[in-house]
Write a protein that binds this DNA or RNA. Structure first.
Lengths: 181, 181
DNA sequence: CTGTATTTTCATTACTTAATGAAAGTATGA
DNA sequence: TCATACTTTCATTAAGTAATGAAAATACAG
């Protein structure tokens, strides 16, 4: 019933070991970055997989439940870090990861910008406006702080946007030139 | 017994409201960034406070326990985002925040680099070496992926280091020029 | 349609992380 | 050195987050 085409069949064991360590570390790092562990692990697994995998293969490989696998695969699709793939003559879906490092970087940058930078920017803008007309030394201090923060975060936001829109071939050489190697 | 010099005594209420919203939002954002909520709130409170505060004032203002306040104040001191201050003739410690946005940015950048980037870089380096001599197409693919990731992350690491070491007066004008405003 | 393969949902459970507050520890002034 | 003000610790509790897996929903082949 369960077919035995697991991704690691016949893999030399040292490669298997290295892969597993990569998957584990990538997952651990995920949590530090506010991305959940399983999601990062699935992403890692698909990044180093030579071929697209099914939900069942992901479950087997990472030893996780169906619900967990499904939820995190959907989430990854939502981020644009993996895509679904249908094989003609088969019912089940396959998943494959974006493997281009630059593209991964752009996707993650945009997503983090959207989720983390933009809400702060809105809040800072409001605080800055609200405090503009307040009287008193404390209020002026507060206003100054909001202005300083907003200007800075806004600049960072612009930089991220510009970079994430650029082509690798333009940015990397420039960065290497500017910041040495 | 409890002295009434709370930080917000006699604050116009609209300023108080704005401050509280800032503190709340900064705290919420903290969690998205892997920094705990209370730590981010204390940091925000001290950033907008006109004068240094004591542990008891922080407790009162944020409605948190002594243990919680103490732990997170220490953590912030560890990051270098706030510093302690002793007032002659008084036993208790006061805490004051670094308020310069550029310096805050540099501190946070260095800390995140140290905690999040460097361990990954080590791991990728090891994986890259381990897989260098492995045979087979899959192993070559894996090696290539590790190389691509390590080159990229290493470049990012260098850029962060260089920027965090630079002076605001050099970086900001350059960034504004390069990435438009 | 109807039966089966596959995917999705979601109430429950497990795990992880943070917060509490009393007790222990430390430092200071008299 | 004693009494007191203040700080730190840490076992316990609470809150938040993720994982499970069975049941429901969906899609598809015949």
């Amino acid at each position: 019933m369960k077919n035995k085409n697991n991704a690691d069949v016949a893999l030399p064991s040292d490669l298997k070991v290295a892969r597993d360590e990569f998957i584990g570390s990538w997952g651990a790092m995920g949590s530090a970055w506010g991305i959940n562990r399983t999601m990062a692990q699935i992403h890692a697994l698909l990044m180093v997989s030579a071929r697209p995998l099914t939900t069942d293969e992901v479950m087997a490989e990472l030893q996780i439940s169906r619900g967990n696998a499904n939820t995190n695969l959907r989430e990854l699709v939502g981020w644009g870090l993996i895509r679904t793939l249908i094989v003609k003559g088969e019912r089940k879906e396959y998943f494959e990861a974006e493997k281009d490092v630059w593209r991964i970087f752009c996707i993650v940058t945009r997503e983090r910008k959207r989720r983390e930078i933009e809400p702060i920017l809105d809040m800072l803008g409001r605080m800055r406006d609200d405090s503009r007309s307040m009287k008193g030394g404390e209020a002026q201090e507060f206003h100054k702080m909001m202005k300083g923060l907003q200007d800075f975060v806004s600049l960072a936001d612009n930089v991220m946007e510009k970079i994430a829109r650029s082509e690798e071939g333009k940015v990397i050489p420039f960065v290497v030139k500017t910041f040495g190697k």
